[in-house]
Structures are given as structure tokens and as C-alpha cells.
Nucleic acid binder design. Structure first.
Lengths: 143, 143
DNA sequence: CTTTATTTAATTGAACACAATTAGATTATA
DNA sequence: TATAATCTAATTGTGTTCAATTAAATAAAG
């Protein structure tokens, strides 16, 4: 009885191109992010901050699929750069609230120039990008 | 003149769901990989080893989109577990050859049970999976 | 045949990711 | 009210990831 080893090939797995693709695109972001002093992880945290202004670590983790082990040092780093402030909630001392600062808001303008530069080097048609988007969120929605 | 900040939202970016999705799927692998003593990175290296038997660090890096800074410690770890051996090429001393061992080959049987367990919890139809696969490789091909 | 350029891994240092644990605060229950 | 259970971040330890540098080997050019 021969075992089926076909699925044990890189070419037959979905996870590998997903994993490789994610890293390759982040690499495209890095030179641009360097210019505004952010890493990719700091950048996606700032995207939530620009949108929400104030969030708890828990909310941030739910949005970004990251836990406090990753977010605590990232928020401390963003605080040291002056882009967010951190304080405990007065209603519930367990909760840490991150809030965007003036400098954080100001950074948005420079950050806005980055996405168009990435978009043009990811050679998908708008249709394809939409399809990919839908499939990725379908996976995320069921995990 | 108002600036366009729409692309600075998580929901309007392709990179973020890609990045989140890749990490979520790797998280699905980990409990299964724990059972055979591998991390995800070690697992994809072994997938190349099962296929090729012998590869240089350079070839491995091209296949996996990883550089020697990542691969050197991973290969040393796999060597310490007895799944691969490492030696310099005699024709070109710069080249390090990784070769699969008996134990590495034997591991393939247990590893073959993992992909089916992942596939069933990634709720895409075969058609959707094929489309996703094609789009991811289209991106990888042009970066 | 040298000297220069290139190639290949390894090393170093910074920044994630994440599982597991800890500690403090809050809530629920006996 | 006590006390147990739960919730929230922070901490710890391991393992990547990558840019940049280093070092050794090989190839190319004069």
C-alpha cells in the first residue's frame, strides 16, 4: 500500500506561496517605511491608530491577529518615537489604552504616499486583486 | 486639496490579509509539526530535502525565498536533530551542501499525514484554492 | 600570473511572532 | 463577603527573518 506524498511538495501547498508572498511584499514596503522611521508591524499598528485614535491592546490584537507578546514592545517603540501614548484605563486597570499623538497624526500624510508605490509593483489587475482579497478574507473568516 | 487616505486602511490593503493569513495557517500547522519535532521553517526546508535529497544553501534560498541568515541556523538545527547532514562541496569550497539522512527520509511518512489535516480546515473549494494558488504565484513571479 | 571582481555562506544585530507563564484587576459564585 | 474563576497585559524564552558586514573561495581581466 503506497502512501501519498504528493501533498508534501512545495508546489502542492497553498500555505507556502502565502507565506513567501507575504514576506516578499513586506520587503517591498521596507525601503519606503524606512523613510518614515517605521517597521511593517509598526506601520499596521499605526493604520489602526489613524482609523481609531484610541484602542486597547486587546482590540488591536483582534484587528491585527497579534497578541500582547508582539504588541507590547511595538507600542513601547511607537511611544518612544512619539507617535502614540500609553495609559491604563481608569474604568478597568487591566486595560491598556494606546492613543495617537499629534506627531502620529502628522505621520499619516507621509504614510499616504506609500501604498500607491506598492500597488504598482504588484502586477495584478483590479479584478484579480479583488478576487485575491476575497479569498484571503474567506480564509481569515473561518480560522 | 484633500489628500487620499483611503488606501491607508487595513481593509483596503492586500498586504495585510496576506500577512495575517500566512501567520494564521502556520499556526494551524504548529500543533501537528510539534508532533514530529519540526518548526514550520524546518518543515518547508525538509519538503525541499524530500524532493531533492541534496541542495546547496543557495538553491534552498531560491526555492524558499530565504537567505543564509535564516537558513544557516535552520540547517544546523535540522543537522542536530539528525535529519540532514552538511558538508562543503569538493568542487567549490564556497558551496555548502545539505543532504537528507535516513532519519530525514523516515520522517516523510509521518509528515505526509499533516497536509490533509490542514486542507480540511481551510474552507476553500478546489476551484477557489486553484485561483488563489495562481494569483499568489503570479505575484511571486513578478517580484 | 596577479590583482580585481564576484560569488557563497556565515555572522551580527535589530525586530518580530508566539506559546507559556505570571501578575494584577475584575467578575461571578458559594 | 470570601474565594474562585476569568480577563488583560506584560514577561520570558525560542525561533525565525532580514539587512548589512565579513571572510573565504573562485573567476575574470589585465
Amino acid at each position: 500500500m503506497e502512501k501519498d506524498y504528493e501533498m508534501l511538495k512545495l508546489e502542492n501547498q497553498l500555505c507556502f506561496p502565502l507565506y513567501a508572498c507575504a514576506r516578499e511584499i513586506v520587503k517591498k514596503y521596507n525601503p519606503h517605511l524606512d523613510g518614515i522611521g517605521l517597521t511593517y508591524t509598526q506601520y499596521i499598528v499605526m493604520m489602526v491608530m489613524w482609523d481609531k485614535k484610541r484602542v486597547s491592546v486587546k482590540e488591536l490584537g483582534e484587528k491585527l491577529y497579534l497578541d500582547s507578546g508582539t504588541l507590547t514592545p511595538v507600542l513601547k517603540s511607537l511611544e518612544s518615537k512619539g507617535f502614540v501614548s500609553r495609559r491604563r484605563s481608569t474604568e478597568d486597570e487591566r486595560v491598556l489604552i494606546a492613543e495617537i499623538t499629534e506627531a502620529g497624526e502628522a505621520l499619516k500624510e507621509q504614510a499616504a504616499e506609500i501604498p500607491p508605490k506598492i500597488a504598482c509593483c504588484v502586477s495584478l489587475t483590479p479584478d484579480e486583486a479583488g478576487t485575491l482579497y476575497g479569498l484571503l478574507y474567506k480564509i481569515l473568516g473561518t480560522m
